[in-house]
């Protein structure tokens, strides 16, 4: 087995690259977050370490933005799920198999169009001079005033992240499709019973992947809020960016970035806890174990879904 020896060394270049250009810079940001901004000309200093920047992050001005971001993040994820679930189910189960390839392509094209440009497309649609607004005015309504509000940001993030919800859900439903659901129907279960007791539980890894794929980047979103949000629709991403780009206060910006990561992790944990509690009575009464145990740690199933 001598030829097996250098095996994992094949991964060494990637490992080194990610350590130098991901782990080290992020570690540096964490280090900066304990420092301070010494003068208007310097961006940060770390000769005195403290938690003062974290206290600053939780001041009322910034706290409001965190609340706003969390609201948009949770509402956006829930809306993506509610809108995307029927679409994914339709694509995987209802649509004729011959059209499936085309439907997937259709969902993917917006996904691969430049994020910024798509968002600008919404800016054009929603602008008070746009055609929707003009049409409304000819019928006698007020001009459209949604641009530069939190509602516009919510619309933008739902639009931008919807494909990231649809695709993993589609893959999950596609896997469940077929014999099992037929068996359920043959045994006398109705449509809804089959959906809630067979399809949905088996599609769980896809649901988890979709929710995480939408929620995590959404919380850090910076483009959508910049293009559609104006002054009212501020999000943490913009706050972090402005500390680095305009205010030149790297210490405070770093603390915000670290808090953002913690807020994301905490929300995911709380969300998982709530889902676990809510489904506890259901899982206790109808256990569904098929093939390999689906009770692997959540992180594993997410990873596989992302990898798949």
């Amino acid at each position: 087995m001598r030829r097996r020896l250098p095996g994992f060394l094949l991964a060494a270049p990637a490992w080194a690259w990610l350590t130098i250009f991901f782990v080290a810079p992020v570690a540096m940001v964490v280090w900066f977050s304990f420092g301070y901004k010494p003068s208007i000309f310097a961006t940060q200093a770390t000769d005195k370490l403290s938690f003062d920047r974290y206290a600053e992050v939780f001041s009322p001005t910034f706290f409001a933005t965190f609340q706003n971001t969390l609201w948009v993040g949770v509402a956006g994820t829930v809306l993506c799920f509610l809108i995307g679930l029927p679409v994914a189910y339709w694509m995987a189960v209802k649509a004729p198999p011959s059209r499936r390839g085309l439907l997937i392509a259709l969902v993917m094209v917006p996904f691969w169009t430049n994020f910024l440009v798509r968002t600008i497309g919404w800016q054009v649609i929603l602008s008070p001079e746009g055609w929707i607004s003009t049409a409304l005015q000819t019928v006698g309504f007020e001009p459209l005033a949604i641009l530069n509000t939190r509602g516009a940001v919510l619309l933008g993030v739902v639009y931008n992240y919807l494909p990231l919800m649809i695709l993993p859900l589609f893959v999950a439903f596609d896997r469940v499709n077929g014999p099992l659901r037929e068996a359920s129907k043959d045994l006398g279960a109705g449509k809804w019973t089959t959906f809630f007791r067979i399809t949905l539980p088996l599609a769980q890894p896809g649901i988890v992947a979709g929710v995480l794929l939408v929620f995590i980047p959404l919380m850090g979103d910076y483009i959508t809020a910049t293009v559609l949000g104006g002054a009212k629709g501020n999000m943490v991403g913009q706050l972090v960016a402005s500390q680095f780009q305009t205010a030149q206060n790297w210490a405070l910006g770093s603390a915000m970035a670290v808090v953002l990561i913690f807020v994301i992790l905490l929300t995911v944990a709380i969300g998982a806890g709530i889902v676990w509690l809510v489904t506890l009575p259901i899982r206790a009464s109808h256990r569904l174990v098929i093939g390999a145990p689906a009770a692997a740690p959540a992180s594993v199933s997410i990873r596989e879904e992302v990898a798949a």
């Binding site: 992020v26 995590i216 979103d221 972090v240 960016a241 910006g253 953002l260 990561i261 994301i264």
Partner: peptide
């Protein structure tokens, strides 16, 4: 899973 903005500022 790290938000892009964190990579960027780092």
């Amino acid at each position: 899973v790290t938000p892009e903005i964190v990579d960027a500022v780092a």
